[in-house]
């Protein structure tokens, strides 16, 4: 009697192609869905604050003058500039799809090392992603309301990428490290960019009231957190769904 056929040996050529398409498919679904929701949240909660700030950036409203300025000026209504909002939706979906590709790729590696990945554990991935990509760089370079004074954009971008990279490594060490040394390294990596310092402007020239700037940063962080939890959870969910799909077709 012949034993039932089981595939215990990997294919002669590494199973690179199906793996890549599984990463790509789950990342596209998860990223587009999370990105669309993030875009709508941004339009509802962040965009009005941004448009309010732009009234000061353009000089239409002036703070620090003699007279008090109303905190509730007439703002363009929601979706009053359809082209601008449509572009924002497209670019938010693009950005989060890019992030989700990276998240799913890292999930595939973690799963290969025996860690469970699904929609539920994905929430933790999302929280870690938020810390790495939003909160770590924003801890020193706070989300900028239009019109703020800032150092050279290229220098800030270099600092941003370096901070995100070190924070991402730190979050991986916290999640998958198994000894005290890895946690200590993670803490050092998280703190180092802020101790070294980010490029700061030489002078403060921002025309926007501090109330608006603070609200903008808080809203940007809040929506970023929501978006990242969705990214992580959707990524884990679609990653498993694609695995079942692949098994069903095997």
């Amino acid at each position: 009697m012949t034993p039932p056929m089981t595939c215990v040996t990997p294919p002669a050529s590494p199973a690179t192609e199906p793996m890549f398409s599984r990463i790509l498919t789950s990342a596209l679904f998860a990223g587009a869905a999370a990105g669309l929701i993030a875009a709508l949240l941004q339009l509802v909660f962040v965009q009005p604050v941004l448009l309010h700030a732009e009234l000061y950036e353009s000089g239409e409203l002036i703070h620090f003058g003699g007279a008090a300025v109303t905190a509730h000026p007439e703002l363009p209504g929601m979706f009053s500039d359809l082209q601008r909002d449509a572009l924002s939706i497209v670019f938010t979906m693009l950005t989060y799809t890019g992030y989700t590709l990276i998240v799913v790729a890292l999930m595939s590696i973690a799963e290969g090392q025996g860690h469970k990945v699904d929609g539920r554990t994905g929430v933790l991935w999302g929280l870690a992603g938020f810390v790495a990509v939003h909160f770590a760089p924003g801890f020193t370079l706070a989300p900028e309301v239009p019109g703020v004074a800032a150092a050279d954009v290229f220098a800030r971008q270099i600092w941003w990428f370096a901070t995100v990279a070190t924070a991402a490594v730190a979050m991986w060490l916290i999640a998958f490290g198994s000894n005290l040394i890895s946690y200590v390294i993670a803490a050092v990596l998280l703190m180092a960019p802020h101790i070294i310092g980010a490029p700061e402007p030489e002078f403060f020239t921002g025309p926007v009231p501090t109330e608006i700037g603070a609200l903008f940063a808080a809203r940007a962080f809040g929506i970023g957190l929501a978006a990242w939890v969705l990214v992580g959870s959707f990524a884990g969910y679609f990653w498993q769904k694609e695995a079942k799909h692949a098994e069903a077709h095997a």
Binding site: P14, T16, I102, A105, S108, G112
Partner: peptide
């Protein structure tokens, strides 16, 4: 060997994601 084979597509996906971002 399975995890090594899984590393190449993961690296591709990370590069693609970084490019988009």
């Amino acid at each position: 060997s399975a995890s090594r084979a899984g590393l190449i597509p993961a690296v591709f996906a990370v590069v693609l994601g970084l490019g988009i971002v």
